[in-house]
Design a protein around this nucleic acid. Sequence first.
DNA 1: AAGCGTTGTCACAATACCGTCAATCAACTG
DNA 2: CAGTTGATTGACGGTATTGTGACAACGCTT
Lengths: 229, 229
Amino acid sequence: MNTMAPTLLLVEDDPALAELLVWSFEAEGYKVLQTPDGEEALLIATETPPDAIILDWMIEQLSGIEVCRRLRRHPELASVPIIMLTARGEEEDRIRGLETGADDYVTKPFSPRELTARLAAVMRRTRPALAGQTMRIEDLELDPVAHRVRRDGKEIALGPTEFRLLQHFMERPGRVLSRAQLVTGVWGHDSDIEERTVDVQVKRLRAAINSTGGRDMIRTVRSAGYSLG
Amino acid sequence: MNTMAPTLLLVEDDPALAELLVWSFEAEGYKVLQTPDGEEALLIATETPPDAIILDWMIEQLSGIEVCRRLRRHPELASVPIIMLTARGEEEDRIRGLETGADDYVTKPFSPRELTARLAAVMRRTRPALAGQTMRIEDLELDPVAHRVRRDGKEIALGPTEFRLLQHFMERPGRVLSRAQLVTGVWGHDSDIEERTVDVQVKRLRAAINSTGGRDMIRTVRSAGYSLG
DNA sequence: AAGCGTTGTCACAATACCGTCAATCAACTG
DNA sequence: CAGTTGATTGACGGTATTGTGACAACGCTT
């Protein structure tokens, strides 16, 4: 079993439904943070980013769409999957929900089983790292929970950006990622970063993970990008 | 500066939807050209043929069906896959769309994921390399995702142009390609490259893929071109 | 407020790679 | 067998692409 449970943030203002969902998520082994309040949800999410967010469309303080949009603005949260709960007949809203960046939606009424299944699917798709635990490529390992990186057992200190960059690589081992892909994936899709900055961060990451010795695990693919593996 | 990212042409006049789709396609690694205008779409498509076209049924200037028909008239574009976006209740049109040569259709409302999945399916059919499938001819294999080429299991280093050239060959196994075809296919339609340059790159590619031993897999067809197989 | 680590950007250095050419070679023609 | 046409090859200079060090701005911690 997994030592660390994936954390969910549930934003739902119907107490009965909330309780039911908390119960069924916990039965699946998730740790659940719950709030009925959109503002509070934003606070929680930015402070301790959860591994996924379940967001009811109809909540009191803020509309679900607004919460969703604000969440997506944070680069830290840009890749956290969001599932929206919509009532029947909110088809219009559903579309707009997807536009603002929700990964999936579930229409009420639904069975808890259906929701957990969707959640599992979304998590598997978007964050393979979170489904399993620490990722490993040869002697390089990254623990996303503890925020630690080791090479050949020896701890490696990385800056936040370097860490995210490495995690991005390790979630896609062997794949060549273009500078543009890395910019949107690591810095966020609305970032106005120079593409050459990727080069510099790659250089820094390289220096860090090669500092303990061993081959250079990042491959430069000329006129294409970089890949790890 | 020719990257190997597959290029899409998105013809959609709803700005919100267009933006969403551009975002999600780019997240999947596509390069996206976008226009709300059918006429302009035709221009773009004929000048720089994309790898696939996403076409909304309801656009302003021309009906989607007309755009589709005109696109199909160009021999250059005859094999480019077209996916139509239709609103619910346009069943009639959907059928006529398929009749006029669309490869697939997606009914609104749809999730971006659904569309990218359909697109991937269509691309897999028509351009295996772009869908990320590794291609193989005898003991020669090319992995477009990892940007790797192997002969008899042994890795082969290729320059960017050599790589694109080989990929172009492997997508058309056994076919004799003229120098002119290779120039436009590998260097781009607006390239002012000497045709003799093709010879040189073929020589370099030959040297590379034969360096591990084995027969010469590139056949010279005098006064016609080259073929791989 | 000062100190520290991190980060984005720039300018320049170091390459890898590419296109062209001219000479050579091979293939077809009569 | 010459003669002609087309293909191969090695060399070379130019250019596009990447690596690198420096630096100023920023945010955190003390």
